[in-house]
Design a protein around this nucleic acid. Structure first.
Lengths: 217, 217
DNA sequence: TAGATTGTTAATCGATTAACAATC
DNA sequence: TAGATTGTTAATCGATTAACAATC
């Protein structure tokens, strides 16, 4: 694998999608694929695929293309999904509950080791086979388990204070489902935002910009 | 408002975020703001903000800046959140349940008029004050209510067939929570993907690329 | 009026696409 | 070997940033 220093964000964001398509092809029993054919399936250019992959190394072979299983595994390694970082979830409301039960953390480089909430009605209940713990025990838990990532599923107004505290407790990355941006509050802390409200508004724009049925041009 | 033909995607994706920041400033009782100050708050350049806004018209005033409430309203109009498109949700599992209850559709240009599931155990239950309907009644419902957007909260393997059917029933846009890409299956149908799995894997990459504590450089 | 800040044009930067020699 | 397809360099395209005249 080549020097991975400073691979651009757009490239990184495409990796999981490559991974998905390759998994599908692998499961179909297909062994090799050319950048051209993959590009057609994915709606990209072959050039882009080759450029993207060559940020990390030459995984193909001239005249042959790419071995699907090998490339699939390589991309998994690049993403680091074999590492299994410890993650905790803050907030076990509707959304937290859904995220905790719906995602396959273990297939994506994480181990969800704890779920916390400060609502007494929720503490002690089971979410996806895990018992929700009291937020009051968070400090203690972090000192012992040393989780690396926190998944924020709390109301926006508590996001900043919680994040600050979690960084002090050693958290190095957030999967942020709150409206709050956590813009550059910290150095060397990764933030991956899932702004569902923003996404919905973007769709709103698209819908309203769609040509009306029957409209000319 | 200027001709909005072909405003680039990156610009559109920033609009909801401007909207959020402006709402916050408005709620704080602040009346005006310069592109410079807003840029500092948001972690952007002032140039970018001015360029973005001038895709739609000149909302500012030299020497003064922007009136926060006016700009907030203008961006709302650009996004079209006053239009209230009818939306239906397909799949009322954990994730669907959370989305239906967690998002404020009415503030973001949509009216969630129906939730459907094919699981008899779920049909008839209440989700966020709405009764889940049987998927078997979907055709009938669409003919009568003419929803414009479908929110897909179903397993990936059923996504394509459901989407095809929904397009035939008149759906013009998808908010797609499935793993399936729905890549360019249709013309003049908007697709906004929320690939949570991809997002999580991107975070995985970031975490593993973070400099180790104590590491030099 | 003087100072501030926009709207807009020009310059820069980065990402995507095209081209092609290398090579399996 | 001939054909296919990569890895990589060069060209293009688009988005971001800088600069500044216009003007409130």
């Amino acid at each position: 694998m080549k020097n991975t220093n400073q691979v651009s964000i757009p490239v990184i964001k495409r990796l999981p999608r490559y991974h998905r398509y390759l998994e599908e092809l692998k499961d179909m029993g297909i062994v090799r694929i050319s950048s051209k054919e993959l590009s057609q399936r994915m709606g990209l250019t072959a050039s882009q695929i080759r450029q993207d992959l060559n940020c990390f190394g030459g995984f193909g072979q001239q005249g042959y293309g790419y071995n699907i299983e090998q490339l699939y595994n390589e991309i998994g390694l690049i993403l680091g999904i074999d590492k299994k970082s410890k993650a905790i979830m803050i907030g076990a409301g509707n959304l937290g509950h859904a995220i905790a039960t719906h995602l396959h953390f273990e297939n994506r480089g994480f181990d969800l080791v704890g779920i916390f909430d400060n609502n007494p009605a929720v503490v002690g209940t089971s979410v996806g086979g895990r018992t929700v713990m009291d937020s009051a025990t968070l400090d203690e838990f972090c000192e012992k388990e040393k989780p690396v990532v926190a998944i924020l599923c709390i109301p926006a107004e508590y996001a900043a204070e919680n994040a600050d505290k979690l960084v002090q407790l050693g958290i190095k990355g957030f999967w942020n489902f709150t409206q709050c941006d956590l813009v550059s509050r910290y150095e060397n802390v990764a933030v991956e935002n899932v702004h569902l409200g923003d996404s919905l508004m973007t769709l709103c724009y698209q819908i309203n910009k769609l040509p009306e049925t029957g409209e000319i041009k």
